[in-house]
């Protein structure tokens, strides 16, 4: 159960990184990636996955 980032569409703005309540998102080699072990899909914390709600590019933060 986790989200992932479609890196080919990502603008590397970093908004998802600081909205993620579980610090699951980090910059690796200039690309943002989601650590599946830390991602909870925001279950129990927020109604919607925060990364997907803030991401400016449609269909870029999606269920893995």
């Amino acid at each position: 159960m986790s989200y992932k980032i479609v890196t080919s569409q990502c603008t590397v703005c970093g908004a998802c990184e600081f909205e993620c309540p579980n610090a699951a998102i980090s910059l690796k080699n200039d690309l943002y990636v989601i650590n599946a072990k830390k991602c909870t899909e925001c279950e129990g914390q927020f109604d919607v996955p925060q990364c997907a709600a803030v991401c400016p590019v449609p269909k870029t933060c999606i269920p893995a």
Binding site: V12, C13, F18, V54, P56
Partner: peptide
């Protein structure tokens, strides 16, 4: 400061 919290119709966030 690359992150933004809104979307404007005249902006493409690339």
């Amino acid at each position: 400061a690359p992150a933004c919290n809104i979307q404007c119709n005249y902006c493409n966030r690339k």
